[in-house]
């Protein structure tokens, strides 16, 4: 994959993102990949003059991730999308659709997950996996 990849944890995600913003990177998007029944992977993509930089965050399915939308406003849309499709909850979202961006209000499942997951309330918060 083009560009450098950095593995990060829940605790230094916001710090890294802020640093990347200061360096003049543009927010591209976040990709969510389902690894197995427990782990999910969030890939944050940034770009500066066509040089990509990726942050790789491994996260447990029932964890809440901090939202980077206070740093990059544009991230609110994709974070809401991940909330809807993969069921990972974000906290601190600037605009929170509460899983209604694509879904109806009463949907509890995450349609993009291969392993059928019904939404539960998150058990851990900002804990390094």
């Amino acid at each position: 994959m083009q560009g450098e990849i950095m593995d990060i944890g829940l605790d230094n995600l916001l710090g890294e993102t802020a640093r990347i913003k200061v360096e003049g990177y543009r927010f591209v998007t976040i990709s969510c990949v389902e690894i197995n029944e427990i782990r999910m992977e969030l890939l944050y993509h940034f770009d500066r003059n066509f040089q990509l930089k990726h942050l790789r965050l491994s996260i447990s399915r029932d964890c809440r991730a901090p939202s980077i939308s206070p740093v990059y406003f544009a991230a609110f849309l994709v974070e809401n999308e991940i909330q809807d499709l993969f069921g990972i909850r974000f906290h601190g979202l600037t605009v929170d659709y509460d899983r209604t961006l694509y879904l109806e209000k009463d949907v509890k499942t995450a349609p993009f997950c291969k392993f059928a997951v019904v939404e539960k309330s998150p058990v851990c918060e900002e804990k390094t996996p």
Binding site: T29, V33, H45, F76, L77
Partner: peptide, 27 residues
């Protein structure tokens, strides 16, 4: 348009992620 593709050596890809330009322009 930004594509993130992950494959695992089978004929089905593992993940295809598409970030379309309008998605970036809505904010």
């Amino acid at each position: 348009v930004f594509y993130y593709i992950r494959a695992n050596g089978t004929k089905h890809l593992e993940r295809l992620r598409v970030r379309t330009p309008t998605f970036a322009n809505v904010p």
